[in-house]
Design a binder for these strands. Structure first.
Lengths: 354, 354
DNA sequence: TGTGGTTGCACCATCGATTGTGCAAGCGAG
DNA sequence: CTCGCTTGCACAATCGATGGTGCAACCACA
């Protein structure tokens, strides 16, 4: 598995071969050589030599000395949904632009696991951390604060650090209006035909419930209670909720709002056990975007958070280091049924296929 | 953004407060203290102190000295498909089990970018690298070999290092048979009704084409030419291919095989521009699994590679360090239409939702 | 020729952990 | 009381890069 393992070149190798001292070499390769009044000629010689020997700095040594590791952390609940995986993709691109190495970890929605994985990042002295969808953002905050690591919350806000989130309330309101409008085309609709499934007791879910009810009130003039069901972010619990509803009413609601694509997977599981008739006249809204989800056999309206903008704002916050926590809200996008949006995949080089 | 940034404790802090030397502290915390004949009592004292001060080792320093960083790399083309994102998820779990910190990067199917990002990993002296779906595995191999980094190919084989891949040929054969059998239930089918879209000139695609043709030959007794279209791994190119086909024949093929979920997104884009009638009687196979894809308005058979097993075998290969490259093949799973498989999401703690 | 200022670089401590080596104290045997 | 062995640990070099400080050489000017 090895072939020609000449050890990697260090500044000392460059120092020997160039006749300059190690500190000179370091200064040249850092770009700080002007400040140290190294002659242009010496700088040129060393740069050329570095190129020739394919020198790249040992980041551990650099980090140890300068206590900046060049690592940028992102904490996700899971990778395995389109929302979070495109967040990882976008994060990587933006981190690299700032010549940081992105390190993405998942906390599995377990407050303890979240703290553990963040501590493992802290051990590598990451320079900054994005906390996305943490169950306990403030617990993670404390770990970061103790280690002096700048951090922001993305998508779920925390009390103790700045946050960039989607406008969940307005998004949910728009989504709810869209599915009700659509469902009404199929005949009159009562408030009791409009439900919400999924989510838990977190900020995003609460806001979405408010938006959901706001839309219902606007349209029907009155809100009905008992029209939402918290199932956590779990496919199996969500599937159970649908089964229960179905057992009780002999059908699904005409029109319903699903809190996230993870909960949507619960609907898929329910679908697996029932015949296509069951879904003949439903209209669904999902607060997340998944291209395949958009083309299911019934109308699916989706909300796509603006991940790129959220992360950009996040990096801005890190750069400016506010003393008091800020909260930034980003408008998400309403996506009508049967829509295949472009995404990170389109930036691939593979367009010129053979 | 900061509050009580007492610097993190080091072995020197522990040394001072315990009265022992730094080297003793190090030995104790490493578990090598028996070998160094440190008394159990001293060990206990230091361990307790470490716990109290919440000591965690500075990984940069450890890495610098011992030249083992504790980082495990995974190179992906992209995050943003269910296949690769669940690979990232599974990789994280398996790396952590070995107390490594997973670092996942994406090479965007660009040979140069692949090498660049791997070099950035090498600068952090990662201990090992999994190369998944690289466009140029052998180029990446050379970077690793030069740095003496153990590595294996996953999913796409390379000549120069060991590889763990899916059985693409048998998988494609099974998938092709499944869609043909299904399509035949809707009436007689000719070989000209069975197409393949997507992929490029890589090992996986070639094998899949062979499997595809093998199945057609088995069933129809003869293969027809011109029944496959390479579009690269690009949604937009694939969409174009479908448009072209549609323009020429006034319809889609009755039955077709799509090389990957990325290409499947090309079909989604095509679908966005056409009415549901267009898809009324097609049967589709996709060499990748996506739960939402499985429930589209037409039958979709899918193949799910066994990611867990592939990664496990990969770690085995790293552990055993074979001199000559090995090739390990793992059977993938055929998934019938309308199937929502369980996945990494189900291992989340969120089952006990409130 | 002496003084003062600039140029161009070298020296060295340092970051925190690891590890080979050395050595004092204690103990038993002779 | 001394020799030799074990026990229990300390010392110091080291990994590679960084950055503060010091200093020789050179130049200009009086």
């Amino acid at each position: 598995m090895s072939e020609n393992e000449h050890r990697k070149a260090t500044i000392y190798d460059l120092s020997m071969k160039s006749g300059a001292s190690a500190s000179t070499v370091s200064a040249v390769l850092n770009g700080t050589w002007q400040k140290r009044r190294i002659s242009a000629e010496t700088a040129r010689r060393i740069t050329a030599l570095a190129e020739e020997l394919k020198y790249t700095a040992n980041q551990q040594a650099r980090a140890l000395r300068s206590s900046r590791s060049g690592l940028a952390g992102l904490l996700l609940p899971v990778y395995d949904t389109r929302f979070f995986s495109s967040m990882a993709q976008t994060f990587e691109a933006q981190a690299r632009q700032r010549s940081l190495l992105p390190v993405v970890v998942s906390g599995r929605r377990d407050p303890e696991e979240e703290r553990r994985v963040v501590e493992s990042l802290v051990a590598y002295s990451i320079d900054s951390l994005f906390i996305a969808g943490a169950t306990d953002p403030d617990g993670v905050h404390r770990v970061c604060a103790a280690a002096g690591i700048p951090h922001v919350n993305i998508d779920l806000p925390g009390e103790l650090a700045s946050s960039v989130i989607s406008d969940n309330r307005q998004g949910a309101r728009a989504l709810t209006k869209a599915i009700i409008d659509h469902a009404r085309q199929g005949g009159p609709l009562s408030p009791d035909d409009v439900y919400m499934f999924g989510g838990r007791d977190d900020h995003a879910s609460r806001e979405r419930v408010i938006g959901f009810h706001a839309a219902k009130t606007e349209i029907f003039g009155t809100a009905s209670g008992g029209d939402t069901e918290n199932t956590g972010y779990s496919p199996s619990m969500t599937a159970l909720a649908f089964e229960r509803f179905y057992a009780r009413h002999g059908r699904l609601p005409r029109c319903f709002f699903i809190n996230s694509s993870i909960n949507f997977e619960g609907l898929l599981r329910f679908m697996g056990g029932h015949d296509e008739q069951t879904f003949a006249d439903i209209v669904v809204g999902c607060f997340d975007y998944d291209p395949f989800g958009s083309f299911l056999p019934f109308p699916v309206y989706m909300i796509r958070p603006d991940i790129t903008k959220m992360l950009e704002r996040g990096f801005d916050l890190l750069d400016h280091e506010n003393a008091t926590p800020h909260l930034i809200t980003i408008e998400p996008q309403l996506v009508p049924p049967r829509t295949a949006l472009k995404g990170p995949l389109d930036e691939l080089r593979d367009k010129d296929a053979r």
